Amino acid sequence: MLVLNAIIVDDEEFARSSLYFLLQENCENIHIAGIAKSVAEAKILLQENEVDLIFLDIAMPGENGFELIPSAIHNNAHVVFTTAFDQYALRAIKANALDYLLKPIDIDELQETVAKATRLVETNKFAQQQNREQLTLLAGYLDNRSEIRKLSLPNGQGGYTIVDFDDIINIEADSNYSVFYLTRKDKITVAKVLKEYEEILPDSKFVRVHKSSMINLDYLQEYNSKNGLELTLKNGVKIAVSRRRASEFAEKVKSYTNSRIDK
């Protein structure tokens, strides 16, 4: 059994102690190397210990949790965020396929996260490089709250494919999976529901046209209502627009077209 050295970083005593208890009782391969109530204390722990995993609160007085990211990158530590107060931050975290746990922390979700982290550490250098890339992307977004432009998609092989939003043509739901159709690859299938990506992708140009379909308006070629509302993408794919989403789709197309004219 691979043992992971972990630290807990949270300014609230109850949050620190409850997470410590949950890990001790439910995650036998986690060794708590230290507990910190601030980013400053966490940096000292990272200097003094080899750390595989950081459970990191975001909203803390003084330095917030994101300011620990450079140290996490330097130490090749995987990060699990343990709060969701900042909706922009949560969106950026989701876009980079990084783990987060909403408080109060659910035991099953905690165990799933620890299992995922264990698999990533086992894959060693490849996972470390991807972890650095994802954390670097996240740090860049959070540093100046710039527009989120890239998405990390789990590729089913223990790693991730980083995709630019502009390269996504459309996404199709397939039960509990989402199939991404891209400009540079045929497709990538991800074990997440379409709604998760609907919450991440910018609604200025990504629109849900059916319960099982979302498109990038950059690739919309035409649409008509001869046999029910149907659209055609620039790659030739035809997609039906559901009746209940027809008015929203028309409004989105209008807003998108006006924004392109203004530019």
Results as ranks from 00 to 15, higher is better:
R149I: 06
A97R: 08
Y223F: 15
E12A: 05
D164G: 01
D262N: 14
I261M: 15
Y223C: 07
Y141F: 13
S17P: 00
K263T: 09
V79F: 11
Y160W: 08
S204F: 08
V190R: 04
Y20H: 12
K103S: 06
S213Q: 10
L19T: 05
E48H: 01
L102V: 12
K116R: 14
R245S: 10
N29Q: 13
L137T: 07
V179I: 13
I30E: 01
P154N: 02
N227Q: 11
D218C: 06
L137S: 15
L68K: 08
L2Q: 10
S255R: 13
S255Y: 13
L138W: 04
R91W: 05
E112D: 15
A92P: 05
T123L: 10
V209P: 01
I32K: 04
S71N: 08
N5I: 01
L98K: 01
K103H: 06
L194T: 02
D167W: 07
L110N: 02
E196H: 12
E28P: 06
H31G: 10
R184C: 12
T123H: 05
S71A: 15
A191M: 08
Y100T: 03
C27N: 04
N26D: 15
H78W: 14
K226T: 11
D166E: 09
S255W: 14
K205H: 13
E67L: 04
S242I: 11
S175N: 05
N75P: 06
L220W: 02
L135A: 02
T83V: 03
T189R: 10
D262I: 10
R184Y: 14
N235V: 09
K94S: 14
T257H: 10
E122G: 04
G62S: 10
A33K: 01
I32M: 08
N227T: 09
T113F: 13
Y160K: 03
Q157C: 11
T161M: 07
